[in-house]
Structures are given as structure tokens and as C-alpha cells.
Design a protein around this nucleic acid. Sequence first.
DNA 1: GTCCAGTGGT
DNA 2: ACCACGGGAC
Length: 196
Amino acid sequence: MIGAILIQQTTWKNVQKAIENIKLSGTLSPELINLISLEELENLIKPSGFYRVKARTLKTYVAFLMEGYNGRISSMNRESLEILRNKLLKIKGIGMETADSILLYALKKEIFVVDGYTKRIFERIGITNSRDHEKIRILCERSLRSEGNSIYCFNEMHALIVALGKSYCKKRPKCGICPGKDLCQKKGVKNEQRWN
DNA sequence: GTCCAGTGGT
DNA sequence: ACCACGGGAC
């Protein structure tokens, strides 16, 4: 859950440093993160960037966890996907991607995580011309559910999209060496950027 | 669209 | 010296 918040607009390597700092400080628990000062938390998570905004979000999140569920994730997880998602989205600093990451990865709920890569890749491939988060999420869930074991498929597909986005379908795409070049229509890729 | 902000790659 | 990064708020 901490990772889901810290990953915003940064890389895993930096998130790991931040989480390692929290571990080394001995405050890796809802109770303790709730207790330490905002400034102390800011210092711990500095490597993950946007550290003031993210420290505030973390504080708000653990307060939510403490007040609503006595700090127990198992207690939180008894609520339905829909109820929980709406509650998470009300927390300042938690948008749809972060909420859905918490629901899928931390709570094993059946929801597909749409991220910036998903929108960019789908747009370029020509799967959709809309960047509407919910439309893409519903589309992915509908398609992947027919494969059975939704949670596993949602996990795996998201991981594969991230892998493709990080190495090939980057902001400046590497179409020449992309494993998907034969089936990609490149509708969203500008001409001069296609064959890098 | 702009800001938040440290870190790594080019 | 740039640029980009597994977002979100305003």
C-alpha cells in the first residue's frame, strides 16, 4: 500500500529506497507511521520524489486505516470492492490508479489497474482512441475475465504492459525493436518517431 | 496546463 | 545539461 502511493510518477528503485528507509527507522506499521512527525516521514521517503505531497498522502491514508479499521488490513479487506474503491478515491492524493493498485495488489480484489502506459500503448496500437480511464478498465476486465483466474490475469497483463511501456513503447518509442511492431497500427505514433 | 521534486538514463 | 518517470490536485 505504501508502495502504491510512493510509486506515483517515479521508479521502483526509488520507492524501494524509501521503503527501506522506513524499515530501518523501525516505523513500518500503520500505528507508527501515524505517530511520527510529518517532517520525519518526509525525510524517510525523500528518494521517491514529490516527498512532501506523498508524505501527506501517506499520513492521510494511515489515519484512514487506523480510524476506520483499527489499523487492520484484514478488517479493511472485508469490505466490498465497490465500497472500498469509493472510500479510497475520497482520500486526497489517491486517484484511480493508486486506488486500484491497492485493491488489486495489496487486497487481491478483482480490478484491473489502468496506468499511463496502458493509455499510451492502447492509443498507439489502435485498440481505443479514448483515454478515458474507466472505459479502458472495463474493456480490459471484460476481455481478461474470459480467460479465467481474473486476479492472476489482471496482475500479469498489467505487469506485461509496464514491461512493454518501459522498454519499447516509451514516450519516444523504439518501434524498430518492439516485439509488437507487426500487430501495431501505430495510429498514435508520430511519423518521425516510428523507427527509432 | 502547471506544479510537486529526487533520481537515473541519454 | 537535459529528459523522463508505473499520478494527482488545482
